[in-house]
Nucleic acid binder design. Sequence first.
DNA 1: CCATTTCTGATGTACGTTAGTCAGAAATGA
DNA 2: TCATTTCTGACTAACGTACATCAGAAATGG
Lengths: 342, 342
Amino acid sequence: MSRPTVHDVARVANVSLSTVDRVLNGRDGVRAATQERVRAAMKQLGYERDLMAANLSRKRIYKIRFVIPDGPNSFMRNLAAELETQARIALRDRTEISVSLVPPFDGRALGAELRRTRETEADGVVMVATESAEVRQAVSELRAAGIQVVTLISDLSASARGHFVGIDNVSAGRTAAGLLGRFCAGRPGRIAIVAGSMLVRDHVERRLGFEQVMHSEFPELKLLPPIESGDEAARVDRLLTDQLREHPDIIGIYSLGGGNRGLRDALDRAGADPRPMVVVHELTDQSRVALQDGMFDAVLQQDIRKEVTSALVIIRNLIEAMPIDAETGRIHTEIFLRDNLP
Amino acid sequence: MSRPTVHDVARVANVSLSTVDRVLNGRDGVRAATQERVRAAMKQLGYERDLMAANLSRKRIYKIRFVIPDGPNSFMRNLAAELETQARIALRDRTEISVSLVPPFDGRALGAELRRTRETEADGVVMVATESAEVRQAVSELRAAGIQVVTLISDLSASARGHFVGIDNVSAGRTAAGLLGRFCAGRPGRIAIVAGSMLVRDHVERRLGFEQVMHSEFPELKLLPPIESGDEAARVDRLLTDQLREHPDIIGIYSLGGGNRGLRDALDRAGADPRPMVVVHELTDQSRVALQDGMFDAVLQQDIRKEVTSALVIIRNLIEAMPIDAETGRIHTEIFLRDNLP
DNA sequence: CCATTTCTGATGTACGTTAGTCAGAAATGA
DNA sequence: TCATTTCTGACTAACGTACATCAGAAATGG
């Protein structure tokens, strides 16, 4: 009553072990009719290949290369840390993870690094994409060489990548608006928007989603033009302080990028009462403390661990040419309040 | 450069394969000094037993039994469906999942079913707990018989269960209060609470957390005593309709259990304007539609798939007496608004 | 020091799969 | 129908570990 093996399949299909193996592993030299017989037997028996035995036999080790941005961005540093811990865990699944860092927002550097990957005999590459012709070119070459590619966090448009793992940033912006709008419940007033830069795609998308919902659902709230801070705390502080002084009727703030320490400082300085409702992105030490203080009301987040493990599952399935559950790559935008902090 | 095997350990420790095996599997007949040598070699090489090969050799199949509530509750039906899909996937990991259904909120029935489990030669049991003496007794017996027990979604207090997988329900209740309180922003009024049963710990804990935050942070909102519906839509409808009629000043509703179709019906019937703000648990077809209609404002959710896979990982680790990462069992409470629906 | 007990090594089989070789059967074309 | 090509079967050796058996070495007790 234990699970069926290739031997059982062979017996039922009335063929030899070799033939079953050939069908199972897509080797050629099997007549269509025979293939069908084997497949029927597998279905009839409910055969599922034993991955453990299979990998053991193949002595296969999946080599996965992560290419992510270097630099001080604390979100990316968290990602790097997570990769380090996942690397140890993945070893048990016969998966070897290596990480290489490239300058951020530099398509040329990323493309060059991707090309270098071909020499490392990796089975797959997971990368945080930067839009550029070089990158798209390099990705095509990798895939042509049989190396699978998955984009993480930031996608490549119109690319031949195998899959994307990350959140939907338009929906994240809409979510922020849904929260902030309800928090400001009926009171008229202005909403300040703090962004990093309108040159990066996820920020643009978040702003887009935010404005969509604000305009349609909360028309009594007036949006101020976004502050562009370059994700630098000092600039957030300075520019936002000015804006708060200029518009005493600011009752809500949406920060869709980094530099949230500056946001806190500006709010501290302004000391409005009641203070504006605040929704920000990315759960960091800073934003966590601010949540607990009651200075921020909600933090939107993407679960880095989930993104990494999903990327691993997906790229392994790509390598094995196994079907991919579309749900796996779709990362939800998580919402944290003071009370559901992890 | 590949991972070390028992052979490497034997060579480095200068002993035979047999001796390494004896140490590795805790067989006796190895002098303490020799054992030390072997262990040192393992540590030096960073040896990790290859679980795949090990299980293959043992021809071990993990038999896991899930015991979950029967009945129309759509959350539990989702769970059952998820178990079905996970069962196919788990097969590849030499894990055989069986599911048995018991009447909901019925400690005696659950206890009896758990006792029956002992005859199924299962290695572990995962169950959605109902509080009762019979259940605690049955769990102790299972564990005494060497069968691991993990509670899922709803925990057992003071029990000998091996682990709990699920959200922190107190924190979920607090989160609901944080949202509903802010949504009701300053307006005074009453809050209705709809629960399933105070016999299951998750409902008790949610209520507790909800009331904590409501009392301390939003004292202008008065809480009505909870409606106990047994998670039946018809009863929710009837009881809530009564309550809405009796208290026209209800401006918020927290539903911490099932039967949300009844909640919708009652709200439809009452037709208040402005309608009360509504926070419910569990993303189902019903609650999803209600979110999109704007009938519900927020839905708290636990990721069923994550819970099932975490439970499987944990119970396998328990069976193998491997260390358990505390983070694995901790499931976050997710928040869904209309705009971040998956 | 010998007899006994306790420890260690050598060897083999098994687990389910992959992957190869080689001989022979079956289908195909001329 | 024969020569060729295309399929198929029978075997075998791995992969890393578990587990059993048996012989022989080392430590122990008297």
